[in-house]
């Protein structure tokens, strides 16, 4: 019996076939509840994965190809040292652009920690020069040696040193998200297989009667497959809908500027959770189909 034919029968439906298995309220409620819980968790796993994805992109692309030169010196010497550093950087191969951060830039950088209206003159702040690398990149070690020789107190801060582990962490977080989604799928399959097996065992007499009257394995299996697929679809749809409401009411990333507040969907991503109930229903269909045909072989 082919998979496409089984799918066609599932979609077409057969009320008579649906009725031959006696209703079991308790099992039905448990299956719907478990599917709802997994649908709920799957939406959050998806949101986490997408957030990690965005974070990895942001850390990967946003900070790629940038470095900073930090100059620690008395305020009186700072303009001269900055000018020397800028001229060195402008003549360094592989440097695309350089920009010395002014007082307003530094104010903006410190504002999240110290608040607005900070008087920068009261703080011994280093001079900062932002470097944008050309695609070819520059010789960081050679540049550092030149800066040390000509600009005392200058340190080349290569972002790659601290960006790489952050990007790796974000990528791992993304993998955890996908792994969680996979685990949820496998758990859904296991749950449906167990529930279907229990239902098939409890209805062994029904199966014997159906065989007695000339029912084929496909007819008998469909009665179980449709039932479990629809229950899981219903439960997962409800769970996913509730999870989407929860995700929607989470504070937006812009308000909190933190990773956790960034968990959610953006734009067309809001359509993705709709796939979860369909995927779970597909898992339930395949799991019940497998369990039903195995049980029918055993009962034979």
């Amino acid at each position: 019996m082919s998979l496409p034919e089984d799918i066609l029968m599932l979609v077409r439906g057969d009320t008579r076939s649906d009725q031959v298995v006696p209703p079991s309220e308790f099992t039905a409620r448990l299956t719907v509840f478990a599917a709802a819980a997994m649908g709920f968790l799957a939406v959050f796993a998806l949101a986490l994965t997408l957030a990690a994805d965005r974070l990895a992109d942001s850390w990967g692309d946003g900070l790629a190809r940038t470095s900073t030169v930090r100059i620690s010196a008395p305020a009186a010497q700072m303009p001269a040292l900055q000018a020397t550093a800028l001229s060195i950087l402008e003549t360094t191969a592989g440097v695309e652009a350089v920009r010395a951060l002014n007082a307003e830039d530094q104010q903006a950088l410190l504002e999240p920690w110290f608040g607005a209206g900070l008087d920068l003159t009261t703080l011994p702040l280093p001079g900062l020069i932002e470097i944008t690398e050309a695609t070819s990149g520059f010789d960081a070690q050679g540049l550092q040696l030149r800066l040390e020789a000509e600009v005392p107190g200058a340190v080349l801060d290569d972002h790659n040193q601290w960006r790489a582990p952050l990007v790796a962490s974000a990528q791992r977080l993304r993998s955890v998200g996908w792994f969680s989604a996979l685990l949820l799928g496998l758990t859904a399959a296991a749950m449906v297989t167990l529930a279907a097996n229990a239902s098939l065992a409890a209805n062994a007499q029904v199966i014997r009667v159906l065989r007695l009257v000339g029912a084929t394995d496909r007819y008998i299996a469909q009665a179980f497959i449709r039932r479990f697929t629809l229950r899981v679809l219903l439960g997962a749809f409800g769970g996913a809908a509730v999870a989407m409401v929860f995700v929607r009411v989470l504070p937006p990333a812009a308000d909190m500027a933190g990773f956790l507040s960034g968990i959610g969907f953006e734009g067309a991503e809001w359509l993705l959770p709709a796939i979860i109930p369909l995927l779970m229903a597909a898992v339930a269909f395949l799991a019940t189909r497998y369990a039903a045909h195995r049980a029918l072989r055993e009962i034979a």
């Binding site: 057969d14 076939s17 031959v20 006696p22 009667v209 159906l210 000339g214 029912a215 007819y219």
Partner: peptide
């Protein structure tokens, strides 16, 4: 060997339903 949750008519019609 009846299906006890179906009524007499439905049980009698079962072979027809199973035959599609």
């Amino acid at each position: 060997q009846f299906l006890d949750h179906l009524n007499v008519s439905e049980n009698i019609l079962l072979p027809l339903a199973a035959a599609g």
